[in-house]
Design a protein around this nucleic acid. Sequence first.
DNA 1: CGCACACCTGAGAGCGCTATCAGCACAAGA
DNA 2: TCTTGTGCTGATAGCGCTCTCAGGTGTGCG
Lengths: 329, 329
Amino acid sequence: MGTPTTRSATLDDVARAAGVSRATASRVLGGYGFASPDARDRVAAAADRLGYVPNTAARALVRGGGVRLVVAVVGRDDSLFDDPYVDRVVSAAARVCAPHGFGVTLEWLSRRALSELRRLGDDRSVAGMLLVNTTQEALDAVPASMRGRVASIGIGSPAVPSFDVDNAGGAEAVLRHLHAGGHRRIAMITGPRWLTCAERSVTAYRSLMRAAGLPVRVVRGDFTAARGGRAALEVLDRWPDTDAIYAASDATALGAIAALRGRGVQVPHDVAVAGFDDIPYAAVSSPPLTTATHPVARIATAAATAVLHERRAEPVTFFPSTLVARESA
Amino acid sequence: MGTPTTRSATLDDVARAAGVSRATASRVLGGYGFASPDARDRVAAAADRLGYVPNTAARALVRGGGVRLVVAVVGRDDSLFDDPYVDRVVSAAARVCAPHGFGVTLEWLSRRALSELRRLGDDRSVAGMLLVNTTQEALDAVPASMRGRVASIGIGSPAVPSFDVDNAGGAEAVLRHLHAGGHRRIAMITGPRWLTCAERSVTAYRSLMRAAGLPVRVVRGDFTAARGGRAALEVLDRWPDTDAIYAASDATALGAIAALRGRGVQVPHDVAVAGFDDIPYAAVSSPPLTTATHPVARIATAAATAVLHERRAEPVTFFPSTLVARESA
DNA sequence: CGCACACCTGAGAGCGCTATCAGCACAAGA
DNA sequence: TCTTGTGCTGATAGCGCTCTCAGGTGTGCG
C-alpha cells in the first residue's frame, strides 16, 4: 500500500466522466472554441464533481507562457536590501498570481549581476518580470523576448510600463501642510539619487520652495532610519534655524526624530518632521508621524496584473498620495 | 518578421551541441546516473555556451512535483491580515524558491475557507505548503497526498514539521531583564488566544511570575498596535500600581507606549514597556524599544527549505530569541 | 575463451495539457 | 442529386523534460 495519492483529477478523467473527448473538455474548461450546451454542462458537472484543478505546469509547458512572475530588485547599493517595501510588493504580487496558479520569485540583484537578469529573461518558466527600484541599465538588460511581459515599479522609464506613487503630489501635500503650519525654513532629506521616484520628490521640493521664495536645503539620505538620523543632524549643523524637516521616507523621518531627540531637540515644538509612506508604525510613533500615503500594495497589484495580462499599459501610471496629518508636523 | 523569440535553449539543443543524446544531457545536468567525464564536460560546456536554463514547468510535469509553494494564512479573524510579518515570510520563501525555479503564492484564508485548502492540497501544481498562523482544524484539512510537503510556522503542532521562534525563551529573557531592572508588578499584553506561539509566551510569563512569587496580570491583545493601546489602558485601570508591561509583539508595545503617553504616563520612568519581535522601527521609536529578536526571515527560510527538500524535519524547531535592551525598559 | 560485471549510452514512453485539423451530421441552396 | 455551409467533435501532434530499460563496450577472473 503506497501513499493514497489522491491528487486532483486530470483533464482525461473529467473527459471520460463526461463522456467526451479530452479536446472537448479542454475547450469547455478553457472557454474557447465550440461546444454544445449539452457537452458544456456535462463537462462542467464532471469537473466540479471530481474537483478538477488544471495543472499549471502542463498548461504552461504547451502554451509556452511560463509559470512564475519574477520580482527583481536591482539595487545600486545594498541599502534597500531587506526593505519592508519590497516584502510588500512581493506579497501583493503573490496574491495576484495565486488564482492564476502562477508563483512569484524574488531576486535580489546587485548592479554587477545584470547577466542574471538576462538569464531570467530567457528562462522559459518565467511568465513575466516586475522590476523594482531598478536602474535604466537594468531595464536595458531585459531580453527582447520578455518585452511586453515586464513592468517596473519605482522608476519612471518609458521603456517599460511603470507603476508608482505620485511622489511629486505627495511632496506638495506635505510641504503645503508644513507651510500652512507656519514653517518657512524647511529642509529635505532625500532618498538615493539613482532612484527616479526619490528624485521626483526632490524636484518637487525644489520647485515648490523656489516658487514660494523659500530657501532650498537638501541633504541626501538613502531611505534608512540610520542615515536619516545622521542627515537630520547634518541639517541642524548646516542650517541651525531650520524649523521643519521633510523626509523622503517614514523610516528616514523616524530616524531623524530619534536623532533630534538625542540632541535635545523637541519634535514638533522645536523642529517639525514629516515623512512619506505612511507605514503601519507611523501612527503609533512618538509623536505620531505626519506623512503622505504610499499605496504600495495597490501599486504592486496593478503592476502584477498588467504583466500577467500582457496589458498594453500607459507608459507611467501614478497612484495618488494623500496627506495624513498627525502630531509630528 | 515576428518576435525574435530567443528564449533559452532546450535540453535537445544542448544534447545536439554536445553530440550526445537527450538522456545523457539530462543525466549530466540533473546530476544523477552515470556519465563519462568526457560527456560530462562536453554537456556542461554546451549548456554554458547556449545559456541553457531548465524549464521548470516541463520538469514539474514529468516529475509530478509541482511548480509552486503555497503560503497559506488561515486566520481565525482578520486581525492579522496585511501583517508585515506575513509579508516577510512570503518574501523569504520567494527567495528560497528562486534558484529552484519555483514560485510562491499567497492565500489569505478565512476559517470558513478550509475547502480551499483541500483544493490547494490536491492541485498538482502545488509543490508544497507553508501554513502560517494556522489552526489545528486547518492542519487537518490538508489532504494526505500533501503530507510530507507541508510545514507550519506559528503553531507547534506535531502533525506537521513546525518552525517557530522560541517564544518562551524570549519571554524569559525579557522578564529577567525587567526583574533585574527592579520591576516587580509586571503585566502582560498577550497575542490572540488561538495562536499557539502567542500562548507559549503567556504560559512562560505565568510560570515565571509564579515561580518568582510575583502577581500575574494578563490582558489579552491581538498583536495590533490599536488593541495594544487599549490593553495598556486596561492594565492601568485594573492594576494602577503596575510598573512594567511586557507586550507580546512590538506593534502591541508601540501602541501601548502611544496610549500611555496620551494618559501622561512616562515610559520608562513611570512604566517600563518591552515588546517582542525587534521590528526595524523598534530601534528608532521614542523611546527606543526594549524587545527580543524574532528571526522571521530565518524561520521562513528554514521552513521553505524543509518543504522543498521534503526533509523529514524535527516535529518542532525553535529558533532562539535574544534580548535587545534599549531605553523603554 | 567464456562469462560476469562493471561502466556508460540512447531510444522511447510518457507527464497533463492545448491547439490544429480532419471529419461527421445535418440543413439549406443550386 | 450534388455542393456548400454550419456546428460540433475527437484524433493527434507535440511542449521540454525525466527515467526506465535494453543494449554496448571494456576489464577482470575462472
